[in-house]
Simulated assay, not measured.
Amino acid sequence: MALQILLNLSLALIWMLLSNEYSFGTFLVGYFLGVVLLYLFRSFLKVDIYFSKVVAFAKLVVVFIKEMIIANINVAKIVLSPKMTAKPGIIAYPTELKSGIEVTLLASLITLTPGTLVMSFSDDQKVLYIHTLDIDNKEAVIAGIKETFEKGISEVTD
């Protein structure tokens, strides 16, 4: 992937030099032409184009922002309600992520979302213990995390 980025930046620089116009706009045009060329010649590079990882990362950021907004609204409802109806609890979340950085990123995203906090990991880092402010259905919470954060992290790192 680093080779692709370097190649793309080199193509953008060559485009800028051949155009004989040294501006950011010309560099940007060369960069996007480089992305197109890398896409067309991806079979020779024997790896997937790196730009798909950038798109997957952008999707993960959007999912995180959406989940954060939803969680903020839910926490505000709990805090502002006259009666305490929240049922806090701790769940054991089994993860399918493999590397330590993936698990750490998942734990960080969960902790940054209001109403949830990763308290601990299992010794093999395959289970996260999560405290939730309001838990009605443990399976729904686990499925929600798997479909949002874990799926997004897998798309970025695979």
Results as ranks from 00 to 15, higher is better:
1 M>W: 07
2 A>F: 14
3 L>G: 14
3 L>N: 13
6 L>H: 08
6 L>C: 14
10 S>P: 01
13 L>D: 00
14 I>S: 05
14 I>W: 07
15 W>R: 14
16 M>Y: 01
17 L>E: 09
17 L>K: 11
20 N>W: 09
20 N>Q: 09
20 N>M: 08
21 E>K: 15
23 S>G: 04
25 G>I: 06
26 T>H: 00
27 F>A: 04
27 F>I: 01
28 L>C: 02
29 V>I: 04
31 Y>F: 02
32 F>I: 02
33 L>H: 13
34 G>E: 01
37 L>W: 15
39 Y>M: 10
40 L>R: 15
42 R>Q: 09
44 F>R: 15
45 L>N: 02
45 L>M: 01
46 K>C: 03
46 K>D: 05
47 V>H: 12
47 V>K: 12
47 V>T: 12
47 V>F: 14
48 D>V: 12
49 I>N: 06
49 I>G: 06
51 F>W: 08
51 F>I: 06
52 S>T: 03
52 S>G: 03
52 S>R: 05
52 S>E: 04
53 K>Q: 08
54 V>A: 08
54 V>Q: 04
55 V>F: 04
55 V>C: 08
57 F>A: 10
58 A>K: 10
59 K>C: 03
59 K>W: 06
59 K>S: 01
60 L>Y: 06
60 L>E: 07
60 L>P: 08
65 I>Y: 05
65 I>E: 06
66 K>E: 10
67 E>V: 00
70 I>L: 07
70 I>T: 05
71 A>E: 00
72 N>H: 12
72 N>Q: 12
73 I>C: 11
73 I>E: 02
74 N>G: 00
74 N>K: 03
74 N>Y: 00
74 N>H: 00
77 K>E: 11
79 V>G: 10
80 L>V: 13
81 S>F: 03
82 P>H: 11
82 P>D: 13
84 M>I: 15
85 T>P: 14
85 T>I: 14
87 K>E: 15
88 P>R: 05
89 G>K: 10
89 G>C: 11
91 I>S: 04
95 T>W: 09
95 T>D: 15
96 E>I: 11
97 L>G: 06
97 L>T: 06
97 L>M: 11
98 K>C: 08
98 K>E: 11
101 I>H: 15
104 T>P: 13
105 L>S: 09
106 L>N: 10
106 L>K: 11
106 L>Q: 11
107 A>P: 02
108 S>H: 10
109 L>E: 02
110 I>N: 05
113 T>F: 04
115 G>I: 15
116 T>Y: 00
116 T>W: 01
116 T>C: 00
117 L>E: 13
117 L>R: 14
120 S>K: 06
121 F>K: 02
124 D>R: 12
124 D>Y: 12
124 D>K: 14
124 D>S: 10
125 Q>H: 12
125 Q>D: 05
127 V>T: 10
129 Y>N: 01
130 I>P: 04
131 H>M: 07
134 D>N: 08
135 I>W: 13
137 N>D: 06
137 N>W: 07
138 K>A: 07
138 K>C: 02
139 E>S: 14
139 E>Q: 11
139 E>A: 14
139 E>H: 12
141 V>L: 15
144 G>T: 09
144 G>C: 05
145 I>N: 07
145 I>P: 05
148 T>R: 14
148 T>Y: 12
149 F>E: 01
152 G>Q: 01
153 I>K: 05
154 S>E: 03
154 S>R: 13
155 E>Q: 09
158 D>M: 10
